[in-house]
Design a binder for these strands. Sequence first.
DNA 1: TTGACAGGCAAGTGTTTGCTTGCATAACGT
DNA 2: ACGTTATGCAAGCAAACACTTGCCTGTCAA
Lengths: 106, 106
Amino acid sequence: MVFKALADPTRRAILDELTDRNGQALLEICSRLATKHGLGSSRQAISQHLDVLQAAGLVEMSREGKWRLYALRPELLAEVDRWLKPYRALWSRRLDTLEQHLEENP
Amino acid sequence: MVFKALADPTRRAILDELTDRNGQALLEICSRLATKHGLGSSRQAISQHLDVLQAAGLVEMSREGKWRLYALRPELLAEVDRWLKPYRALWSRRLDTLEQHLEENP
DNA sequence: TTGACAGGCAAGTGTTTGCTTGCATAACGT
DNA sequence: ACGTTATGCAAGCAAACACTTGCCTGTCAA
């Protein structure tokens, strides 16, 4: 489920946002995605993405009065890192040049 | 496209197979997936998965007489590794125990 | 040259995905 | 108490996805 959850760019942007500031409410995430990431997704769309992330175990939710705060749970990302491990040796020869390329074209 | 390509478990299994032995023909990949990975996908299904992997830039194809040999191109996986980078510090505290857990439950 | 082998191409199908729309609910401020 | 804020829930919908089916195309070997 983790890989599928990461397939959507909006969901990856949500995770990125949560690393930036953990424990955000839904509308908070919405407005920050709109301004910082340039994504104009609706509240319901983001909410459903958060459901997917929660089902995948990448995010946890806690009720706090009026708000529902979402926090990152990065543990399962180690699964991705683990899958990536055998490949790391294969690209590492050209890693420097690619990293430079990505640096120039983000 | 890379993240979407990795979302499907069959496609990840194909990549795993190609690391094991690079430059395989289509039917070769099919039979190896069936035996080693326990996946009973048809020739056309695997072919379409390879199309996706090729479009994502993770695999390259070369015609060699009767066969079409598929080879891994791991460079773009560095993109995933790069995205993962900021998260690595977050889970690393508990990395040892999780890695052990995944080791015991592959 | 004919048959077997390796694979392409295209249309069709059932499910999933990402998103919207509309209405409901629960907590807070005044 | 009442309106506002923050969110849930459920149905609907178009597009994408994973896969199948059926037929066609090259390549090699006898």
